[in-house]
Design a protein around this nucleic acid. Structure first.
Length: 570
DNA sequence: ACAGACTGCGCC
DNA sequence: AAAGGGCGCAGTCTGT
């Protein structure tokens, strides 16, 4: 059964915060009541209403009751809501759910699949689309967390369709019909994307354990003592001085233009000041400049000001944007969560008595390609030896040179041909014609202006006009070539997350999903369940492989570490 | 003063 | 002949 849920304007969680206003140390809020005009309506699987809409006086308690009943063997429920903002509010009120249908995320998938990429996919636009009205640009659907109503409903009080619950129910039913027009893949993707939204909200609520004291110590070791706000750390100032001395006059190392002029005066005409270019020239400023660049980046991107902004009560809580990237990868808003540099990963530490389970999919993208293309040879290469696909490939085809094997494979998936990649690619093509042919077909589709789709049906947005020039067409080909692999890898990871979450919930595990980055998951769990948690991750990976590719021989091994700190090898 | 483009680099 | 996919972020530069 499904239940469409609309918290409605003005409903706010009451008493859900700790008395002092802070989150509880375990990252959860105290269960609270949810006052306001919440309503819900029971639906059949196809979205048809089974009963009249009902007001729900205490939403969080009501949701908890239904979920508890399902856990005890009652009917399973899939909650239908407008967006994960509803779930964020439920979580704060102390209610979590097993399954949902996220209307705005599904609308995004459908809009793309129907060849209308770029059209808005908020509920207002979805309702307009359903009614055959021109898709009005989405009003700012941003709604603050404490429940200010979105402008959408406030703006149309007289419209009978402005009943938010009725709109939700109608759009959801329409989505069920539209999903029928596509294969089962898109349905699976819709469910996985929705589950991903649950995971994302829960990960933000749990937070990634982050030791501010360790981070501060690392920064101090590398940069010198913490400077006054806005100030430049001692180590950076010293390096800037060294650079000035090397050039014979002060140069701002943060200004590429100044650096180019300074190098030109010294007889080095450079195109850019990228680090790999600087490494090729012989000048006394290069050493300190490279050191400066590395440390300046650490300071500005993940330094003390980042720490103060993003870490509270021992947790880093990035906001994940599910499906925020065209390929379906997640993005994050603020905090640079997907670019945590290795240099500060030691600050990610499990609580006392707890462990981190760090799991990443080994060589995910080539394995995805093998499965997508049905390339038995490449699948076999991934299953030989100790599971190192690149090493197997190297032994088989590249005289044991793992680096060249990796370059060849990545070139096939990214469209690179420089650096000798073209020759390696030719060798790869002869050995794995299905896999290489698959990405080359995708590249050709892009060059010819056609659309490509992921395995489950996420559709790449069409090229913008002006891509008729050869250079642009080739760029488009590289994009579509990569899209089919990256987007399918992203949906595999999404299904893994959904399966893992399901497994943890159904066993009552205390393990928490706390971080996700493309092909890597971090869990935080009591030490005594770390082994079981690690096993659950591999099981979820296997299940994800079967869900996407059925009986494919391709395996998806996870490299799992059970550690105290994110930087530890094991 | 502000916005947006550009540069360069972190992660996958 | 040459041709490297996807992001977010901070700082500089440019245009208004």
């Amino acid at each position: 059964m499904r239940i469409a849920l609309e918290p409605g304007p003005g409903s706010v969680p009451v008493g859900s915060r700790h008395p002092d206003g802070a989150d509880r140390p375990d990252g959860t809020d105290r269960p609270g009541r949810w006052a306001g005009a919440a309503r819900w309506q029971r639906l059949a699987e196809d979205g048809t209403p089974l009963a009249a809409a009902q007001p729900v006086p205490d939403l969080a308690a009501a949701v908890r009751a239904i979920e508890d009943d399902a856990r005890r063997g009652g009917e399973a429920v899939r909650w239908v809501w407008r967006s994960a903002r509803t779930y964020r509010r439920l979580l704060r009120a102390g209610a979590d759910v097993a399954r949902c249908h996220d209307v705005e995320l599904v609308e995004g998938l459908l809009v793309g699949a129907e060849g209308r990429s770029g059209e808005p996919h908020g509920i207002a636009a979805a309702a307009a689309r359903l009614a055959g009205r021109p898709p009005a640009p989405d009003p700012a659907l941003e709604e603050d967390d404490d429940g200010a109503p979105p402008a959408l409903f406030a703006a149309q009080p007289a419209d009978p369709d402005s009943d938010p619950l009725a709109t939700l129910v109608a759009v959801h039913a329409g989505q069920q019909r539209r999903l029928d027009a596509f294969g089962p893949g898109l349905r699976l993707l819709a469910a996985a994307e929705s589950a991903g939204a649950l995971v994302a909200e829960e990960m933000t609520a749990h937070g990634l354990p982050w030791r501010a004291d360790v981070h501060d110590r690392l920064l101090t070791e590398l940069l010198g003592p913490r400077p006054l706000p806005g100030g430049r750390p001692a180590r950076l100032a010293a390096l800037a001085d060294e650079i000035g001395v090397a050039f014979g006059r002060p140069v701002n190392p943060d200004s590429p233009a100044e650096l180019l002029r300074a190098f030109a005066r010294a007889g080095h005409e450079l195109e850019t000041t990228r680090a790999w270019v600087l490494r090729t020239i012989d000048h006394p400023a290069v050493g300190p400049l490279l050191a400066y660049k590395e440390l300046a980046r650490l300071h500005s991107a993940h330094g003390w000001s980042w720490l103060r902004t993003w870490v509270r009560d021992g947790r880093f809580r990035p906001e994940y944007v599910v499906g925020g990237v065209v390929s379906g990868r997640w993005a994050t808003r603020g905090g640079g969560a997907l670019q945590i540099p290795r240099a500060v990963r030691a600050a990610v530490r499990a609580d006392p008595g707890w462990r981190l389970v760090v799991a990443d999919a080994a060589q995910l993208e080539p394995r995805i390609l093998a499965a997508l293309a049905g390339d038995a040879g490449l699948a076999h290469a991934g299953n030989t030896g100790d599971g190192d696909l690149y090493a197997a490939l190297a032994a088989d085809l590249f005289g044991g040179d793992r680096a060249r094997a990796k370059l060849a494979l990545l070139s096939a998936m990214y469209g690179q041909t420089s650096g000798g990649a073209g020759v390696l690619l030719a060798r790869l093509r002869r050995r794995f014609p299905a896999a290489v042919g698959y990405v080359e077909d995708a590249a050709r589709a892009g060059e010819e202006g056609r659309l490509v789709r992921s395995h489950l049906g996420r559709t790449c947005p069409p090229a913008r006009p002006g891509h008729e020039q050869p250079a642009a067409a080739r760029a488009r080909g590289r994009f579509t070539r990569n899209f089919v692999v990256q987007a399918t890898a992203a949906e595999w990871a999404l299904v893994l997350l959904a399966e893992l979450r399901h497994a943890l919930r159904s066993t009552g595990s205390l393990a928490q999903l706390v971080f996700f980055q493309h092909d890597e998951v971090l869990l935080h769990c009591p030490a005594e369940v770390a082994g079981a948690t690690a096993a659950a991750v591999q099981e979820a990976a296997d299940t994800a492989g079967r869900r996407l590719f059925g009986a494919s021989p391709v395996r998806f091994p996870m490299q799992v570490r059970v550690v105290g700190g994110y930087d530890e090898k094991q």
